[in-house]
Nucleic acid binder design. Structure first.
Lengths: 130, 130
DNA sequence: TTCTTTATTGATATATAATATCAATATGAA
DNA sequence: TTCATATTGATATTATATATCAATAAAGAA
């Protein structure tokens, strides 16, 4: 027996799908707790990790911040606003195959990469100078 | 008066230069403590943050792990071995200007990016399958 | 040199994110 | 329905980093 379909696990997956992108474990917990206040935060963390390992959702590790979770959708990269800290999507089809061009002097076997862009979001560009 | 030259700050900078690349705050603290066991770990953290903000050293944020610090050297990207977790350098001159090609649908103003590659290092390729 | 200001230190407490532990519960196959 | 065990909820623990604050020391002024 591998895994069991618990209501908590369904709730986590549904919440991630409902929030669509860039929700933290805390936000996902809050979303679920609105209707099911007895769910444990540990259960949310656990199921997010399991679902991410199984590839049903995508874990986005934010340096210096909480991990975010995306529902399964087209591949994309992310930008984080240096001012407000929010994360947005960026279309980046052309980056596919990037690692093929890398000159590597260590004999590394590449399996992938994470790119996180930095910038200032439109809201923060408007709201005053830096 | 802006900043003062303390021996602790010098020790931190020297340790980073001596360790060259990918040392964590803890490793840098240990390196210094060999000769100066009375230095506080808080002081090491503080000076690493200051030196990184001033651009004298480079902070490398590792998702899910401790930040690493590099001495100032040529621009390069990093690979983390998925097995042993060590971080290595990767030459990547051609990536310069990457953000120019991005199709952005949010009006974002880009200031930079971090790329962290994943892979298996030579040591781990040799030592058994996956 | 001595005085004075205040940046910095050391020690500790706190914050944050995530995982580990463990008895109790509930899933799903027999 | 029974049973093995995956999962839950509650809590403790780990790990990394920052905040607090009295004491110390760097560097310009006298």
């Amino acid at each position: 027996m591998k895994s069991r379909n618990t209501i908590q696990r369904s709730l986590v997956l549904e919440a991630v799908n409902r929030l669509k992108c860039h929700a933290t474990a805390d936000q996902i917990y809050a979303e679920i707790a609105k209707d099911h206040p007895t769910i444990s935060k540990a259960t949310v963390y656990r199921n997010l990790a399991l679902l991410a390992n199984w590839g049903e959702i995508r874990r986005l590790e934010i340096p210096g911040g909480a991990d975010c979770f995306d529902h399964r959708c087209h591949d994309h990269c992310h930008v984080r606003c240096a001012k407000c800290g929010r994360v947005f999507d960026v279309d980046m089809e052309f980056v596919t195959g990037l690692e093929k061009g890398i000159h590597d002097s260590h004999g590394f076997f590449f399996t992938g990469y994470d790119i996180l862009f930095h910038g200032i979001c439109p809201d923060c560009q408007r709201s005053g100078q830096h």
